[in-house]
Design a protein around this nucleic acid. Structure first.
Lengths: 237, 237
DNA sequence: GCACACTTACTTACAAGTCAGTAAGTCACT
DNA sequence: AGTGACTTACTGACTTGTAAGTAAGTGTGC
């Protein structure tokens, strides 16, 4: 399978970045082999979950044995962490390509990401499965997801604050951010179970619009429960 | 296998319901033993997930061996299904005690349930973990959660339709229902990871209020992304 | 009201498989 | 020549599920 040829050797020296920040110097194709493993792991963990996803399956899909995978990542847990960081890396790279999350335009980035996710169920599944699995006792990705959520909430609240220009309290901003994150995450599960039942981009967009509009208005919506009760008993018991 | 004897023959005529469709009569304490297993299973599956939750642990917590558990439920998968149905049973019983989901008052029931859930992290975790795990390939609870979500969405959309009295289209009602479900599910994960970071009842209530208010108004909120862009470039590029 | 036939509710023991991780060796690059 | 990238081979810890046995129930006929 491996056809490492003379051609490879010629250009290893040309790359400045090659072994720059690595602790140990890897061979020419190492980086792409590691990446192949990471992609395989994303797919397997997404399809089966971290607990049920076996290293042999990851290894097979990356074209090596499971011991080879362990050679690169030390342990299954190490692989998980690497997958998570890799995913972040990809996402950041994607954002950077567009524009690195400058204030208000971060909102359109969110919408775009949701729309894109519609075409990559694998990525969505990996994230949805792992994030929920992470709440189990002693799960290795627990801290990762807790931190990630906190940072994201803070970030979204900040952007919403900019957009609404001081019309809303910090608490309302944080609540709105939590709501938006919850809608995105919750919809993913619904969508994975039944892709035709929900239109993720439309619903997330609507939610965001309503959230911002409400934040701007400064007033809370009337109680839905009271409205409902009034319907049942118009006299107002 | 069947030892149909003369004794049987003598009385088969007396009973209309004969051995053929006999349900199996359990002994006196069987029901509570089964329930002990179900409770143990809820706890273990919640804490560890279905895949990692071992039968031995469930059995231990119920005070028997894992073979005893299999005697009652046939297989691990059978136990999972039983747990899910058991959970529904409890919930239905709770609803019935209050009032069986009559139209508009279903909304206050939702809010009450969310508030109650704040005091039973175990139940929340079981649901959150299993529902997300169910999206993995060939998971035994997949159909259960798909159906459950569909029914719930339809139900909520129906109630929202009653409350808003024809002000909204069916699509908008379904979207609002999906949103509400997503918020509840998504918040649960955030809350499990960091209980102090989100106030579930408050946020769900707010979301419901805003959803109903928006549905009543009939008009969509202005685009948040456009508002944000206007901020960055007020000329309107 | 008691013996007999049979079932239920388990237990212990085991089979069979899966999985992460390790040790030692091979081979290609550098 | 030495290090990095593997493979092969193996171990040990866990799994679920099955088989076989046992004690305690349950219902029936007499």
């Amino acid at each position: 399978m491996e056809g490492t040829t003379v051609a490879d050797t010629a250009q290893t020296a040309t790359r400045v970045v090659s072994a720059a920040d690595r602790v140990q110097r890897p061979q020419a194709r190492t980086l792409e082999r590691r990446e192949a493993v990471l992609q395989a792991a994303m797919q397997v963990f997404g399809a089966r979950g971290y607990n049920k996803g076996a290293l042999v399956e990851v290894a097979e899909q990356a074209g090596m044995t499971h011991a080879g995978v362990l050679h690169h990542f030390g342990s299954k847990e190490g692989l998980l962490i690497a997958v998570l960081k890799y995913r972040d890396g990809i996402e950041v790279a994607g954002v950077e390509a567009r524009e690195q999350a400058e204030g208000p335009s971060f909102l359109s980035h969110i919408i775009e990401t949701v729309a894109e996710n519609t075409h990559r169920p694998g990525v969505v599944q990996t994230y949805a499965v792992l994030s929920a699995e992470s709440v189990t006792d002693g799960h290795p990705a627990q801290e990762y997801f807790r931190d990630r959520t906190t940072v994201l909430r803070e970030k979204i609240a900040g952007v919403l604050g900019e957009v609404t220009e001081g019309h809303a309290s910090r608490q309302d901003l944080l609540d709105a951010a939590s709501t938006l994150i919850a809608v995105m995450d919750g919809l993913q599960v619904q969508w994975l179970l039944d892709p035709d039942a929900v239109d993720m981009p439309r619903i997330v967009t609507k939610t965001l619009d309503e959230l911002v509009d409400r934040l701007m208005s400064g007033a809370a919506a009337p109680s839905a429960v009271e409205r409902a009760n009034a319907l049942v008993d118009p006299t107002g018991r």
